[in-house]
């Protein structure tokens, strides 16, 4: 009859949801791979002065456009700079833009979306009108306009991209909240006197985490690419500072002669996005107890 034999001595503690989720996460192979990749990339960027074999901005015209070799693992660019070193240093820019934009979009977009979706009414109307108005502009154009307004430095680039991404996230969160709000357990919680903040934070937020995580991986990718575009237009990272997006854009001119120049930053951006996607998948499953492999369920008539 019993699913687990009770051990009389040890008192049983409720494991926290977070602890349970953390236990689930490593079971997700791809997520683990994604996590390790991302960690390696972040570490390399953080430790760039020690990891990068060359100075990323030092021009050596004598050795320009060299294909990959033992000396230069990923070749050199049109100024003779080591592509691998630029990749490592460029990660500092691109990853921090990605991370900060994700954090910004999350802190602004999630509360807005939750409030809008749960409370509805006039707040919702106003917010969604605003978001709609925002979204009628092409995102890049909007970011360019914002940077133009704020001044072309990297902080403002992040802010601009964040401001473009936050409303998109808010809308995703709002949509999911609208659906979850109608679930019976929300009414059941209300019938027990739960306050709105409690309902939103403990009942709804947990149930809209999956779409949030998925959207945040999209936001990260969009941020890295937007930074590239803005840099290319001369707003973000100024040459000769390395950034994945900038280097990728610049490399297009040498696509025929030096494809490695283009493939290196493109490859690393793809790797990051893919890793984050896997990570997101794993996170999503880890947050959903129904996806866990668990013990047999407690049936009627037991006990």
């Amino acid at each position: 009859m019993s699913t687990a034999s009770p051990s009389p001595a040890a008192p049983y503690r409720i494991p926290s949801s977070l602890a349970l989720a953390a236990r689930q996460f490593p079971r997700h192979r791809l997520a683990l791979v994604g996590f390790v990749c991302l960690l390696a990339i972040c570490l390399a960027a953080a430790l760039a002065p020690w990891v990068a074999p060359y100075d990323p901005v030092q021009i050596k015209l004598g050795s320009k456009l060299k294909p990959p070799s033992w000396e230069h693992w990923l070749g050199t660019d049109h100024f003779g700079r080591d592509v691998f070193s630029r990749l490592i240093w460029g990660g500092r820019t691109s990853l921090s833009v990605g991370a900060l934009v994700v954090a910004f979009a999350f802190t602004i977009g999630v509360p807005l979306g939750l409030a809008s979706g749960y409370f509805g009414g006039r707040v919702d109307n106003l917010l969604m009108r605003l978001v709609d108005a925002f979204l009628t502009f092409p995102p890049l154009l909007l970011a360019v306009a914002l940077v133009g307004l704020l001044g072309p430095d990297i902080q403002n680039v992040m802010l601009a991209i964040g401001l473009v991404q936050a409303p998109i996230l808010a809308r995703v969160v709002r949509g999911s909240t609208l659906a979850v709000r109608e679930d019976v357990y929300v009414t059941a919680a209300r019938a027990l006197g739960a306050r709105p903040t409690r309902i939103v934070l403990s009942h709804i937020l947990r149930n809209v985490m999956s779409p949030i995580v998925v959207q945040l991986t999209v936001v990260f990718a969009a941020a890295v690419i937007a930074e590239a575009s803005l840099s290319f237009l001369g707003f973000g990272t100024q040459p000769p500072q390395p950034s994945w997006g900038r280097d990728m854009s610049e490399a297009r001119r040498f696509l025929a002669d030096a494809p490695w120049m283009f493939m290196a930053p493109t490859g690393i951006i793809m790797l990051c996005v893919l890793s984050i996607n896997f990570l997101g998948d794993g996170l999503r499953d880890a947050l959903d107890p129904r996806a866990w492999r668990t013990r047999r369920r407690l049936a009627d008539g037991e006990g």
Binding site: I14, D183, Y185, A188, A189, A191, R206, R290
Partner: peptide
């Protein structure tokens, strides 16, 4: 409520 399958929050213990 009527539906015990849906009146508990699936992601909370």
């Amino acid at each position: 409520f009527q539906d015990p399958m849906r009146s508990l929050n699936p992601v909370l213990t």
